[in-house]
């Protein structure tokens, strides 16, 4: 109880500090700390799946993206201060935020008692999916279309970022780390940590069918390992025009969609699986999806092409 109280106060305190921070870099650090504390909150709420996702994606990967963005802003000579919004805009933001917060609070307070839930139905039908982790069953079977759309959204986000590059750089290489020190510290860490990290990523993905874990969390760890080797200068980012890279990016959503369409023929509706080999189909989807997500996340962090494609 005391722990929960301290946790709630810390989460709110860090959130307030992050919003109030003047420096972009400090705000990003606050955001990462906020995400890690939030992961602890999810653990306390007995939602380890959400906690893993929050720690890996919400705090780790989004934190990395924001760090990269804040570095870019700093490099371009743009600071948050030069774009300070006027008082009317600020007032409008306060009103909108207050409105949204009030709406959320009202929704929460107006929930019927007991709150409506599909948990019993999900638990009753989990046997048909061949999975043991109800969260993965929801993500990959009961609400598979949401997961499919999430992967597509990620792909569209990557395409959107790529299209920020000028025409002559289209299909080029993202900015390299500029480091290549074979005896350097980062090289050592990358060589030591990356094999372990890849194993952990595969484990987190594989364990998802029976315990907290899954393709998004596993893919984030795989992406992080790729980013680490790239930052250490051990590998260069691939040119975004490479056919194998584009195939890797599309493979996950394409297999997902194809098996979804096949559902019409073999089970009667989109994204339906026949119970006898539901688990096999889910795995067939999950493996390419995990690899695609890992590539998308890593390329999102790598940034838009900044070097001309090699002819």
């Amino acid at each position: 109880m005391a722990f929960d109280a301290v946790l709630v106060v810390s989460v709110l305190g860090v959130a307030a500090w992050t919003v109030a921070a003047r420096d972009t870099f400090a705000a990003v650090v606050g955001f990462i700390a906020f995400g890690l504390l939030l992961a602890l909150v999810w653990v306390r709420l007995a939602a380890p799946d959400v906690a893993l996702t929050e720690a890996a994606l919400g705090s780790g990967l989004t934190g990395g993206l924001l760090l990269a963005a804040s570095t870019r802003l700093g490099r371009a000579g743009m600071t948050a201060a030069s774009e300070t919004p006027g008082s009317i805009l600020r007032l409008a933001a306060v009103v909108v935020c207050a409105f949204v917060a009030a709406g959320l609070v009202a929704l929460l307070l107006l929930l019927p008692e007991p709150a409506p839930t599909l948990a019993t139905q999900a638990a009753a039908n989990i046997a048909a999916t061949g999975l043991l982790n109800p969260v993965t069953a929801v993500l990959m079977a009961f609400r598979a279309i949401d997961t499919l759309l999430e992967v597509v959204v990620l792909l569209v986000a990557l395409l959107g970022m790529w299209s920020l590059a000028p025409d002559r750089l289209w299909g080029g290489l993202p900015r390299g780390s500029g480091l290549s020190d074979p005896d350097g510290l980062l090289t050592f860490v990358a060589q030591l940590l990356v094999p372990v990290g890849i194993l952990v990523g595969i484990h987190i993905f594989w364990i998802g069918s029976v315990a907290p874990g899954g393709e998004f969390q596993g893919a984030t760890i795989l992406a992080a390992m790729w980013i680490l080797t790239a930052v250490a200068g051990l590998v260069d980012a691939p040119a975004t025009s490479r056919p194998w890279l584009r195939l890797l990016l599309v493979a996950g959503p394409a297999v997902f969609f194809a098996i979804g369409l096949a559902g019409f023929a073999i089970a009667g509706s989109f994204l339906a699986y026949p119970p006898s080999y539901a688990k096999l189909l889910i795995l067939t989807i999950e493996i390419p999806v995990t690899l695609s997500i890992a590539a998308m996340l890593a390329l999102l962090v790598a940034g838009p092409p900044e070097r001309e494609p090699q002819r």
Partner: peptide, 13 residues
């Protein structure tokens, strides 16, 4: 051990 490795590397940097 992993926290040791990461901590040592990051503090060095």
């Amino acid at each position: 051990l992993l926290a040791l490795l990461a901590g040592a590397a990051v503090t060095q940097l």
